[in-house]
Amino acid sequence: MDISKLKGSNKKTGVCKLRFQGDMDIYAAEETLAALLPYFDDFKTFSVELDQVGEIDSSGIQLLLQCHRQSQKSDGQLSILSWSENVRELMEIFQLTERFTLPDAA
């Protein structure tokens, strides 16, 4: 799992844009959380690009829920800028689509 910070992130405003690349499954979970932790310290609201996510399972969803939880602290919510088919399918099963801000196309 590779997480990279995108342009438009701003520590002052607390806005953080991240791009996730790779699998968000249980095998990658620890690594993904470790990569996320620094951003949780520095930023408040999160926007994520998920169109390059491969396999995803409940552990990946939990991490996204954690991003959402952090965003909520400042009355925001997680916004998903883009998503792969896998991610979209899982979000729909878990009926999380109303909780997050979704890509425009959706």
Partner: peptide, 13 residues
């Protein structure tokens, strides 16, 4: 997701 702990206390697995 109420049981989700703070990030530092979270075990991703």
């Amino acid at each position: 997701d109420e049981q989700l702990p703070e990030p530092a206390a979270m075990d991703a697995e």
